[in-house]
Each structure stands twice: as structure tokens, then as C-alpha cells.
């Protein structure tokens, strides 16, 4: 069987988890991979906890079920950890990436995830600095690249530009690119 990467994003409706899942998939597609990206609850409701998924493989992807044992989990909204077991299904090699001002050790305690790797980055603060508003989804992709290397920063930035230049303008694109690069630099593992 082809090795397939499965990513689960946790966020709240309106925080861009679906967009992050899609952007990751589209960047991988640009590198010649087969991809899937889908939100769990279809049209998301603003503020409600939601999940979005990305699958990436070098072979066509047949699987059409939800992702239950992801290799990578990205938590865009840290408050979700109070009510949702974000580490559910993560295996021994699993990677948990959390948007938080706390250190990886604190996240390990909170989530009781003692395997694999934990990465933390204050993506909300980064987006406030670079975009002037809390949009942690793109910096979280910067942290994901640091943690996994499944795509390249340069490819992500190019895809972002191509996809969103019309919608958010040059300034918006630059803010996002700065956020991705800063998160890539600042993400800490433990």
C-alpha cells in the first residue's frame, strides 16, 4: 500500500481550519501528489468546534471515510483542548502541533499525549503582529512544515499568493507570508 499522510485540523468555524486543510492539499498537489481535503461537518457554523482533514499520497486515494488515526494533528484553537481529545487516534510516531503560548511540556500534560512529538507556536500572536487580526491558520501551516517537512515554505507561499491575491491584496498576502515564516522559525518541539 502507498504511504499516505493523514492530517486532522481542530478549530472553530470561521478560523480557517477548512482553508488550511485545503491550502496544504493544494500545495502538495502542486508537487505532483494526490490529495483530499474535507471538513467534517460540511458547511461550518461560526464558532462551533469543527475538524477538517487532509490526505496526501503519491498514489490515487481511494479512501472516502473520515480520518480516525491521523499521523499529524494541528490544533488551531487551543480552547478546544478543554473539551475535545485532540490526540485521539495519534500513533507512536504521531505529531501534535498546537497554537498556544505554552511550552510543549505543558501541552503534553494537558492532552496526556506522551508519544511522538509535540510542537507549539503562538500563532495567534504572530497573526496579530503580521496581519493585525487573529488568523492563526496560515502560521499553523508554517509550524506544520517545520514539524513534518511534507511541503516546502516556498511552495506554500506561492500557492497562497495565487489563490488569495485577488481576495486579500498584496498587503494581506505579505502578512500571511510573514506569519508563515515567523511560525516556521518560532515553532518549538518537546
Amino acid at each position: 500500500m502507498a504511504k499516505m499522510i493523514e492530517v486532522r485540523f481542530h478549530g472553530r468555524g470561521g478560523q480557517g481550519a477548512k482553508t488550511a486543510a485545503q491550502l496544504l492539499a493544494e500545495t502538495a498537489l502542486g508537487g505532483g501528489m494526490y490529495i483530499q481535503a474535507f471538513p467534517e461537518y460540511g458547511p461550518e457554523r461560526s464558532g462551533a468546534p469543527m475538524r477538517a482533514y487532509t490526505r496526501i499520497s503519491d498514489k490515487p486515494i481511494n479512501l472516502h471515510s473520515g480520518v480516525t488515526s491521523p499521523g499529524i494533528v494541528v490544533v488551531i484553537d487551543p480552547t478546544i483542548m478543554d473539551t475535545v481529545d485532540v490526540a485521539e487516534g495519534l500513533g507512536d510516531e504521531g505529531i501534535l502541533i498546537v497554537n498556544t503560548e505554552e511550552k510543549p511540556e505543558a501541552i503534553r500534560q494537558k492532552t496526556k499525549f506522551n508519544k511522538g512529538k509535540v510542537f507549539t507556536v503562538n500563532a495567534t500572536q504572530i497573526s496579530l503582529d503580521t496581519l493585525g487580526r487573529p488568523m492563526p491558520n496560515t502560521p499553523m501551516l508554517g509550524a506544520l512544515i517545520k514539524a513534518t517537512g511534507i511541503i516546502k515554505v516556498k511552495d506554500l507561499e506561492e500557492k497562497l499568493k495565487k489563490k488569495f491575491l485577488k481576495k486579500i491584496g498584496e498587503k494581506g498576502v505579505k502578512g500571511n507570508i510573514d506569519a508563515i515564516e515567523r511560525a516556521h522559525k518560532e515553532a518549538k518541539s518537546g
Binding site: Y34, F38, P39, H64
Partner: peptide
């Protein structure tokens, strides 16, 4: 085509 599973999933 299957609602959400196919209709809303992004694929290559």
C-alpha cells in the same frame, strides 16, 4: 454523487 463526501471534498 455522494453529498459532502464527494460534493464538498477537494480532490485532485
Amino acid at each position: 454523487l455522494d453529498g459532502f463526501i464527494t460534493s464538498h471534498a477537494v480532490e485532485r
